[in-house]
Amino acid sequence: MRRVLERPAAAGTAAATTPARSPRRRAAVAAMAGSGLSNQTGAAVGALAFPVLGPLGVVAVRQYVAALVLLIVARPRLRAFAWPQWWPVLLLGGVFGTMNLTLYSAVARIGLGLAVTLEFLGPLTIALAASRRRLDAGCAVLAAVGVVVLMRPRPSADYAGMALGLVAACCWASYILLNRVVGRRIPGAQGAAAASAVSALAFLPAGVAVALAHPPTAGAVLCAVAAGLLSSAVPYLTDLLTLRHVPAQTFGLFMSVNPVLAAVVGWVILGQGLGGAEWAGIGAVVVANAVSIATTRH
C-alpha cells in the first residue's frame, strides 16, 4: 500500500522539478562551452605577449592572477596546515607551474592546437590506465595512432616543442593525482588556493628577471593578465558552479573537446592553420577520450 501511494508523489515531484532543472542544465552546458572557449582564448591571447615577455613572463603573470583569484575565493587557513597537508600542496604548486610553463613553451614552438592535444594525453592516460575494458584498450590504441600522426617525421617537425607538450601531459596527470591527495586532506578549495600561492611565489623571481631584462609594454601585460583571467579564474569558477548541475561524465565529455577548441582558436586568433593530417590526429585523441567517457558506467 505504501509503494502505491509513493509512486504518484514521486511522479508529481519529478514533474515539478523537471522544468526547473532543464533551464539549469542548459545554462550549465552553455557554461561548460564558455569555460572551454575562455580557457583556449586566454592561452591564445597570452601567446600574443610572447614577443615581449616570452612564455616564462606570461606564465609568471598568469600564476600571479590565478593565485590572487583563488586566495580571494577560497581564503585558505594556511597557519592551520600541518606537514601532511603541506607536502602535497608544495608538490601540487610545483607541478602546476611546470605544467603551464611547458604548455606555453610548447605553444610558442608548435602552436596552440597541437600543444593542447599533446597535453590532453595526461588525463586521457589516467582515465585509460585504471580500466580493464577491451573498449578502453581500443581507445588507447586510437589515441596512440593520433599521437603518431601528430609526431610523424617531417622537415618542419619541432620535436623539442612536442617534447614540451608531452612533459605538460605528464604534469597534468600528476596534477590530477596530487589534487586527489590534497582534496582528501584539505577541505574545499583551500588546497588549490594554497598551491597556486606557492606556484606564484616560485615564479616571482622569474617575473622580476623577465621584467628587468625585457621591459614590458602595457599591451603585453594586459595580454598576460587576460590569459590569467580567461585561462585560470574564469574556468575555475565556472567549472565549480557547473559541476553542481551536471554529472561528472557529461563534464568529462565537454572537456574532451578542448583540443578542437584550441585548434580553432589558434587558427582564428594566431593564424596557426593545420593540415588534414594534424586534424586527423587531433580528432583521434578527442574521439578516444569521448568514447571512453561516454561508455563508462558511473
Score class of each variant (00 low, 15 high):
V198E: 03
A213K: 02
G271I: 10
I126R: 04
V210P: 03
P84F: 11
V167Q: 01
R185N: 12
T117S: 12
T238I: 07
M32A: 10
L68S: 15
V147L: 09
Y64T: 09
A14T: 06
G54V: 05
L222T: 14
A82D: 12
G228I: 12
V89H: 02
F254C: 01
F96K: 00
V234H: 07
L53Y: 06
Q40Y: 01
V286Y: 12
A66P: 08
R77P: 05
L270V: 09
L243E: 03
L121I: 08
M32C: 11
A197Y: 00
M255F: 10
V58N: 07
W83E: 10
V225T: 13
R152M: 03
L101Y: 09
P51Q: 08
L68D: 05
A49W: 07
W86D: 05
R185H: 14
T242A: 14
L56C: 00
A220D: 08
R244T: 05
T238V: 15
T17D: 05
L177G: 09
Y104S: 06
L90A: 12
M99I: 02
P84L: 10
Q63D: 06
S35M: 12
V287N: 08
L68I: 12
A209R: 13
P84D: 10
A28S: 13
P235A: 06
P155K: 05
Q63I: 07
A127E: 12
L270C: 11
A294S: 10
N100M: 01
Q272Y: 05
A106S: 15
V225E: 09
R180C: 09
T41Y: 02
L91K: 06
F96H: 07
A194N: 04
R26F: 11
R3A: 15
R2A: 15
H298V: 10
S22K: 06
G219W: 14
P247S: 15
A28T: 04
R21G: 07
W267R: 04
R154V: 03
S38N: 11
G161C: 05
L150G: 07
A140T: 13
V95C: 13
A197Q: 01
A33V: 14
G188N: 07
A82I: 03
G266L: 04
W86G: 02
S35T: 11
L142W: 05
E119M: 10
V210R: 03
T125Y: 09
L103I: 04
S174T: 15
A194T: 11
A80D: 15
P235T: 04
G34A: 08
M255C: 02
A193F: 10
A16P: 03
V167P: 03
G228Y: 11
W83M: 14
R7N: 00
V65N: 13
A209W: 10
R62S: 12
M99S: 07
P153N: 09
G228K: 10
I282W: 04
